[in-house]
Amino acid sequence: MACESWKEKLDTYLDGELPEKEIHDFDAHVRGCPSCAADALRRVQMKRAIQTAGKHFTPSDDFRRRVQQSIASKPQRSFSSGWVFAAAFGLILVVGLFTSSYVRMHSGREQIYSEIADLHVATLASSSPVDVLSTDRHTVKPWFQGKIPFSFNLPELQTSEFSLLGGRVTYLDQTPGAHLIYDVRKHHISVFVFQSQSVNFSASLGDSSLSPKKLPFTMETWAQGGLRYFVVGDAGAADIAKLANMFKAAAAS
């Protein structure tokens, strides 16, 4: 094999990613080829330089403490009587057998609702909530092309009291989606669109309108055409439903 062919694989070799069967041949070649040996040495020097330079930033003790406190587990209660614990454990186990499935699904739903509400609130609290600032759906929709792995239709607003403020890319369960912000009588409403298959518990969410616990928002969610939609805001339920219906009509067109 010519030297150039070996050199093409030199980085892979030094990264330890060369298939085992090729390593022996490679070792033999590098030992007998001054050019490749010098090149390998040079690249090892560069790797070491990047490794050293790359470990540059150290967090403060105060910051470590803050993060640790924010994730610290709560202290466990101790039981003085073993049989009380055993009885309680047995009871929990029996009840758990009947309810675990429901609880898992329910907590999954609650988690998604609270995640959506978090995204809505965090975005509105931001100094620049949208990355594409436009009231024109023909500007906002193309902006998402290439940024998210699907396309969707936006409703025509001309005859409605809603106005589009803009949009941004967002993430739920580490998958990308579209976040659109609308305005109606000084209330902001967020519309989130994700691929149905990407959202955990999507099937259990169904089509529903609800006010999630502890959240001062109305939320509507449904699946349509392989996409999962969420409409959330502090506007009245009628406005949320109206905007949701406009999206349903646009998706069906």
Binding site: E4, K7, E8, L10, D11, S35, A38, D39, L41, R42, R43, Q45, M46, A49, I50, T52, A53, G54, H56
Partner: peptide
Amino acid sequence: EQVVPAVMETPESILLQRSDWQLVQKAV
């Protein structure tokens, strides 16, 4: 992309041998 073989040059090796970490950091 085809992987471009490295050209036998020495200036960068000299630079790296001098352990100019600030330069490496800036480049990264």
